[in-house]
Design a protein around this nucleic acid. Structure first.
Lengths: 351, 351
DNA sequence: CTTGGCTATTGACACGTTTTAATCGACGTG
DNA sequence: CACGTCGATTAAAACGTGTCAATAGCCAAG
């Protein structure tokens, strides 16, 4: 049996000089035809392009980057790949990057400091062009080191870090908490629980502050009216588990509303309340945060504070691009406004 | 004012030869100390390590890869970053890769052929060590080209492609459809709608076939009993929109159960039914597929066919690793078994 | 015919590493 | 003392590309 006349790439991969040889020109010319086609005369360019096609040549980006000192991939460091908030952001980042011909390396810190450190190290070794980062809540020392290594980054969803350190894009969490608070006050609720994530998260604290500000604004003493309850994680299991604590104190002291730092938490709360025979919104109003995909599809629909997730991702990537391109760059703080979306899970207090 | 005695990295990035100079050895020795420490004598090794620390040297992976011909990053090409099924898989892939010191480049084809092609091209240019791929349903020509370029890959969630082409890991969709079917038959349902995604998706077709097989097994003619309804996409919006068609034909011909190809679809269906005043499971049973996070937290809980998403990801990455390491590699087909999870959304038919 | 100017192309080097073969020094053995 | 051996280190050659100064070719002007 004679082997099929396969194409001739059985050898090691084909390099720029192979193409040059085939087209009867020098490697430098091939490089020019690839990178600055205007500098090379029409007929030679056509010959080279033909050779590229015939040999199925694909340039080696290591060599390119090594020589030019420029990489065309950026990092995206998130806290949790499985969180719908982050994936929506990731989609935004990816879309803009891909428009620009940049590849996105997704890194998942799983909210652990050591994994963040490893990821940062990797970005430095890869000499990534830049990164979009949602840091774990410890210090930003890793990140500062990364910038000193020549990899700039944009901060995502951390409103507390100043513009002296880096560009950042975030949503005004205080305003979000306030919007939720005003809504609840408007419905007549005066005894509300704030179901927070871990207290170390700046986002959680800012939302609480907003909620309290809304009550104060209405002449209600926030210390008496809002009780914060902290959970270990921002997921549904934590929310469901917290229900017991929410209801502690018996029916007389039962809260009139629960404002959750997260839709996942709210989901767990809804589940837990349902299991205990409490109706939403008849017995209790529930407000979430984020407006993730399922929020509008629950029954009742979840009233929640929406964040422009996809747009956040796009904006962060754009900020990074401008930092990469502009020569005299000044850091910029971008703040989006959250939007309250009223659905069926909140109703007037029937006192 | 004298400037602070900053560390001396104001110059361009520090290379291996800088370290060598500082430690009073040759670059080769530094390389050895980094890669094969046993070959270098104790005192020199210590000197070099010290110099590395003092200069804060971080090796440049381009140079390394260029020379050694080996990359330490693998691609993960998914159909939709925002789909919880994929993100869970991604987490599995990432975890195994990170154990092995490999970086994962996440690429999103958004189910579009052109974006898949671009991604494949990128992997070739980057000379990725390998890839885990969930291809769009067109042909696998792009992928075959990629392998010819020297980048091996493992197929994910596509049961129809043979082991002659590549390793693959998937879940037995036929068995999953059958499990759902048997469950519904056991509850007495004999008029069920299969709410499929696009008919071109092999997964959707296989699940339908399984459903039909279960009915046939019970002595019911599948052609009369199950009506397939196709949607454009596998998301909640499509599911909600499809409700109208599900109910077409009036209350007399109303289906007794709906089996959805996807939990997102099922979510939309639940929402749509609720809006029309139909109760689940009293008026209609609903079954989903995947068992994504919110499935158990809905009210009622969604009966669904669970897939070991995280394990799939891990297995795929392991398969890829073995292909990278083994010399004489033979492609392997790995098949996971789905598991039916019965919750509140299904009940016996009250005829 | 010579000179100058312009364009298209070419060599050669640099990028930061790894790796191989060669060198060096020291030490034990005949 | 000569010789071989062995371990530690080094010098130099790759890897595939981009860039830049230099060159060849060509035409028009002097």
């Amino acid at each position: 049996m004679t082997p099929l006349p396969e194409s001739e790439d059985d050898s090691r991969s084909v390099g720029i000089s192979d193409v040059a040889a085939r087209a009867g020109v020098s490697p430098g010319t091939v490089s020019n035809v690839l990178n600055r086609p205007e500098r090379v005369a029409e007929p030679t360019r056509r010959r080279v392009e033909q050779a590229v096609r015939e040999l199925d040549y694909v340039p080696n980006s290591w060599g390119r980057s090594l020589r030019s000192g420029r990489s065309d991939s950026v990092g995206l460091l998130v806290l949790d790949v499985t969180n719908p908030f982050f994936t929506e952001v990731a989609r935004g980042v990816e879309d803009v990057a891909s428009e620009e011909g940049l590849a996105v390396v997704l890194l998942n810190s799983a909210e652990r400091q050591d994994r963040q450190q490893r990821s940062v190290r990797l970005l430095a070794e890869q000499r990534a062009a830049g990164a979009v980062v949602m840091p774990v809540d410890g210090g930003v020392d890793d990140l500062l080191w990364l910038r000193k290594q020549g990899v700039p980054w944009v901060l995502l969803d951390r409103g507390d870090v100043g513009a002296d350190v880096a560009c950042s894009v975030a949503v005004d969490n205080h305003a979000g908490g306030m919007a939720a608070g005003r809504h609840l006050v408007g419905l007549g609720h005066e005894r509300v629980i704030y179901l927070s994530g871990p207290s170390r998260l700046e986002q959680c604290r800012a939302r609480l502050a907003g909620l309290r500000a809304a009550l104060e604004e209405a002449g209600i003493d926030p210390d008496g009216a809002v009780r914060p309850v902290f959970t270990e994680q921002l997921n549904a299991e934590s929310g469901e588990k917290a229900v017991e604590e929410l209801l502690a104190g018996g029916p007389k002291r039962r809260p009139q509303a629960v404002f959750c730092a997260n839709d996942q938490l709210a989901l767990g709360v809804l589940k837990g309340l349902g299991g205990r025979g409490l109706g939403v919104p008849q017995d209790l109003s529930v407000v979430g945060y984020d407006d993730v995909g399922f929020a509008g599809l629950l029954h009742p629909g979840l009233t929640t504070v929406a964040q422009p997730k996809y747009e956040i991702g796009r904006a962060a990537m754009r900020l990074l691009l401008s930092e990469l391109n502009e020569t005299g760059h000044r850091h910029e703080r971008l703040r989006f406004a959250p939007e309250l979306i009223v659905r069926g899970s909140t109703a007037a207090y029937r006192g």
